[in-house]
Simulated assay, not measured.
Amino acid sequence: MTDEAKGVLAMIGACTVWGLSGIYYKLLDHVPPLEILSHRTVWGFVFFLGVLAVQGRLRELPKTLSTRRNILLIVFAALMISLNWFVFISSVQMGYATDASMGYYTFPLTAVLMGAIFFRERLTRAQGVAVALAASAVITLAYGLGAAPWVALTLAFSFSLYGVVKKGLSSGPVVSVTAEVAILTPFALGWLAVVHQGGGGAFGIDALTTAMLIFAGILTAVPLILFSYATRRVSLATIGLVQYLNPTLQFLVATLIFREAFTIWHAIAFAMIWTALAIYTASSLRRGRAARKAAKTAEASGTVI
């Protein structure tokens, strides 16, 4: 199996966990989002350290933070992923899981845009149309609801920027993600200390809640490792393509399980985004076929010579 194929499989695994994770956090809606985020961070850090210890790679962690460039990149990545986590948990608990799914539907197109801006990946005409159509969908929804869809926009752009930063890190996926949560852990512990003063806090109130808060670290760690693994092996455009699985599962969970309201303005905006994704997908498939054909032609020419 090629590295690219392994990266695609890793992305599918990550998106499946992310797509269904809303159900998990809905079961924790009696715990404030920031408290859940803090536990995700702390227990995720414990899990990552365990993985590195088993692999005998703990010494790589200080090396990852040995240069100013890496520190700045990892700090920014940590900020983007923590913002993404917090907004997602909050949206599920407050009844905006549909908007969250819209954000992750928009992510593939913002990923294409980030690729063009930061890595000079050229946009085809079809990709440009798709991005413009997605922007029109956001404007349409903002007009219809009387407010900008901040949940969707925040999730799309924070995750796109996170992918950009991960692309620029030379350290392995487990090490880089461990470094991110290592930076966040002191803040998470500080917040939990404040929450638990005077007997507050959800941790320890019952066995199920405590176990779920601890397991949130694993639920956080595994897909992040898979995502980091994928970003090192496939292009941002391919990541965006496979990413469709995540919002599709989120959308089904929001509408079929959570029974959230789905207005006419949501229907119009989603239709525009799905059309944009169809245009983008068709363009990507055509480019992929053309590239494979060109490679085969070049290989045949080389054989003849």
Rank of each mutant, 00 (worst) to 15 (best):
T2Y: 05
D3G: 11
E4W: 04
E4G: 07
E4C: 06
K6T: 12
A10I: 03
A10V: 05
T16I: 15
S21T: 11
L27P: 04
H30Q: 13
H30M: 05
P32N: 12
L34I: 01
I36C: 00
S38D: 01
S38C: 11
W43L: 01
F45G: 03
V51F: 14
L52N: 09
L52I: 10
L52G: 12
A53T: 11
Q55H: 15
G56M: 08
L58T: 07
T64L: 12
T64G: 11
R68S: 10
I71T: 12
L72D: 04
L72H: 12
L73V: 04
L79E: 00
L79G: 05
M80F: 06
I81Q: 11
N84A: 01
I89S: 01
V92P: 03
V92M: 03
Q93K: 08
A97F: 02
A97K: 01
S101P: 12
M102L: 09
G103R: 02
G103N: 02
Y104T: 00
Y105C: 03
Y105T: 04
P108G: 05
L113Q: 09
F118G: 03
R120F: 14
L123F: 04
R125A: 12
A126S: 13
L145D: 13
G146T: 00
P149M: 06
P149Y: 05
V151S: 06
A152E: 05
L153Y: 02
L155W: 00
L155Y: 00
G163I: 00
V164Q: 00
K167Y: 02
K167W: 01
S171M: 11
V175Q: 13
V177N: 15
A179C: 12
A179K: 09
V181F: 14
A188R: 14
A188G: 13
A193G: 04
A193T: 10
G200Q: 07
A202S: 15
A207K: 11
L208F: 14
T210I: 10
A216E: 06
L219H: 08
V222S: 08
P223W: 05
I225G: 06
L226A: 09
L226Q: 03
Y229M: 04
A230T: 01
A230Q: 10
R232L: 06
V234L: 07
S235T: 04
S235F: 03
L236S: 07
A237G: 08
G240Y: 01
Q243V: 04
Y244H: 05
F251C: 01
L252C: 06
A254W: 04
A254S: 09
A254H: 02
L256E: 07
F262W: 10
M272Y: 14
I273K: 00
I273Y: 00
T275Q: 05
T275K: 09
A278T: 14
S283N: 13
S283D: 15
G288R: 15
R289T: 10
R289H: 15
R292I: 10
A294D: 14
K296V: 13
K296N: 13
A298D: 13
E299S: 11
